[in-house]
Every structure is written in structure tokens, then in C-alpha cells.
């Protein structure tokens, strides 16, 4: 019985729903505030994403004529659920809940499920703007997949040296290895991979310079062109929570060694690190550069960022 209660607690509160939503909204609010401050303006209050979400919940949901009603309403819920499940599988430093039941490949595919749910939602809404939006979202997914995979393999090889198989995909092993011999970020051969991962985070989430899928100025909110009311609010919430999940993934992959005694303290450290990461990877590029064109995103990720990841993969493979 206690395990059931613990599971409900895990799913609903700590690494699950409540924690992710609160931290995600916090990160999103902070991001908008920092971008505003960098543009020399006051910027919205910190709780602005929370107000946006609540406002969307209060609005009316219109189902367009060409839309597939069932899929149209189910897509955001499915995407959000898959994202929270991925968050459950990511260990918060030493406090790992379900990370033994899934590894890096599963998390990679869960994040793909989140992307696919947005695409299916756009397809089900039947609007041409959504059609262009989903095609751009898919190109963005293809472009960040290669560096993400190279980083994953590099980390797997580096952390797997000790294991009998020589490689590992399991996050638990990666965290233990980092606890044993120092965070991966401080191994010089992994610096390019960490840099590549920093680039992958904004494209995965769809933050400003790489938000070709939801370019509101070009294709009228792209994938969310036909969404109004709670589904649109849920999609925006997924967008915010994804910021936290990607930062958490980076922290585990490259800073996994940090582990204070208690889970609460670990969670706090994770939040602080996520704030720093959000600033570095999402706020600064958002304030500084303009939105990329579609083929520029693809070319940038498959040449520059993939090159960085490949360098560290080769270095790791040579045993350095």
C-alpha cells in the first residue's frame, strides 16, 4: 500500500506533475523577464506564464470545421503526459525514482512523442498554417536529433568505460559514474559535447531563435493556429515544462556528480542550475539574435553543432 502512495506522490508531486509545472512556469517567467530586461524594458511579472495558462483555461475552445475532434483535443493531453513521464525518468541527481526503468533512448523517444503530439494536433486541426507549422516542426526535430544522438553516444561511452559492456545508456549508471570520478563537464574531452547540448536545448524546446514551428509573425502561430482555450493553454504549459525537462537532462548528463544528502536540497540545486541554464541557452539568444530561417536551422545543427558533438565523440572513442 505504501508503494502505491509513494507512486502517487512521485507521479503527482515531487518529480512529477506539480514540481515540473511549478519549476517550468518559474523558468518561463524568468526567461521572459530576463529577455525584457536585456531589451531595456521592465518585462512581465514572474508569474506571467501562470496567468497566461489560467487565462487560456477560461477561454472558449472552438473546434474548427475541418478538425478531427477526438485527436484535436487528445493531442495536448498526450503530449503533456509523455513529457511528465519523461521527467519522472530523469533522476534528480542522487534521488532517482524510476530512472532504473528507462534509459537515455527511452527519454529521447519520449521527447519525440511530445513533438509528434504537437504535430498530430496541428494535422488534426486541418488548417494550412498548421500544415506549414508541422512541416517546420518536423524539420526542427530532424535537425536537433543528430547532435542529440551524438552527445548521447559520447556520454554513454564515457560513462560506460567501467561497466562490463563498455558502454551504457542508463542514466543511473551515468550519474553513478559522475559521482565516482567527477562531473563530465569538467572532463576536457566532453566540453564540445556539453556545448553541443547547450545548442540542442533551445531548438528542442522551440525557443525564439529556433521557434520556426510557432513563428507567430510568419505563419500565425504555426502549429497552434487553430487552438484556443484549454488545449492551447496545455500546449503552452508543455512548452514551459519542456524547458525544465531539458535543463534537468543537461544537468544529469553533464553535472550528475553533484549530490547533496537530501532530495529537497538536490531539487533546489537542480532548480538553480536550470535557472542558470535557461539564462545562458534561451534568454541570451532570444534577446540577441533574430529568428533563423528553416533551412538555416537545419544547416546550423547538422554542421556546426553536430561537428562539436562529433569531436567529443571521437575524442572519447580514442579513450581520452
Amino acid at each position: 500500500m505504501t508503494t502505491l502512495l509513494w507512486t502517487i506522490f512521485h507521479v503527482l508531486v515531487f518529480p512529477g506533475l506539480l514540481f515540473c509545472v511549478v519549476v517550468g512556469l518559474l523558468l518561463a517567467g524568468l526567461d521572459r523577464k530576463l529577455v525584457a530586461r536585456m531589451q531595456n524594458r521592465v518585462g512581465p511579472p514572474l508569474l506571467q506564464p501562470w496567468y497566461d495558462f489560467l487565462k487560456c483555461c477560461g477561454k472558449e475552445t472552438i473546434i474548427p470545421r475541418h478538425a478531427r475532434r477526438g485527436l484535436f483535443l487528445a493531442a495536448p493531453v498526450l503530449g503533456f503526459a509523455a513529457l511528465i513521464t519523461a521527467a519522472l525518468f530523469i533522476p534528480v541527481f542522487s534521488y532517482s525514482v524510476y530512472s532504473t526503468s528507462a534509459d537515455l533512448v527511452v527519454i529521447l523517444y519520449l521527447l519525440t512523442v511530445v513533438g509528434v503530439s504537437m504535430i498530430v494536433g496541428a494535422a488534426a486541426s486541418g488548417s494550412p498554417f498548421a500544415g506549414v507549422g508541422l512541416s517546420r516542426e518536423m524539420v526542427a526535430m530532424i535537425s536537433y536529433e543528430l547532435p542529440f544522438v551524438l552527445v548521447m553516444l559520447a556520454v554513454g561511452r564515457m560513462a560506460g568505460v567501467g561497466t562490463p559492456l563498455g558502454v551504457t545508456f542508463s542514466l543511473q549508471a551515468i550519474v553513478d559514474w559522475q559521482a565516482a570520478n567527477g562531473n563530465l563537464l569538467f572532463h576536457w574531452s566532453m566540453i564540445p559535447a556539453a556545448l553541443a547540448m547547450l545548442f540542442v536545448i533551445p531548438c528542442e524546446i522551440g525557443m525564439h531563435p529556433f521557434d520556426i514551428a510557432e513563428a507567430e509573425t510568419e505563419i500565425c502561430e504555426g502549429t497552434l493556429a487553430e487552438y484556443s482555450g484549454p488545449p492551447a493553454g496545455l500546449f503552452r504549459l508543455t512548452h514551459c515544462v519542456k524547458m525544465y525537462v531539458m535543463c534537468a537532462l543537461f544537468c544529469v548528463l553533464f553535472l550528475g556528480g553533484i549530490s547533496t544528502g537530501y532530495a529537497a536540497l538536490d531539487a533546489l540545486v537542480m532548480v538553480v542550475l536550470s535557472v542558470v541554464l535557461t539564462f545562458v541557452t534561451m534568454s541570451v539568444p532570444h534577446a540577441v539574435c533574430a529568428r533563423f530561417k528553416v533551412e538555416q536551422v537545419f544547416k546550423f545543427y547538422w554542421t556546426v553543432v553536430a561537428g562539436l558533438a562529433l569531436i567529443s565523440l571521437i575524442l572519447v572513442w580514442l579513450g581520452l
Binding site: A36, G43, P45, Q48, D52, C220, E221, E226, S228
Partner: peptide, 22 residues
Amino acid sequence: LTPRYDAERLGFRLTGTPRQAD
């Protein structure tokens, strides 16, 4: 929406579709 008047501090945001407009 520019820094001098900054409507965003009151929560205003320009959206692309009427579906998400208030």
C-alpha cells in the same frame, strides 16, 4: 510594445491568430 512604453509588463502580447486573441 517597445521598451519605452512596454505593454508586456501588463501582460499584453501580440498573437498571430484570432483563435488565441482576447
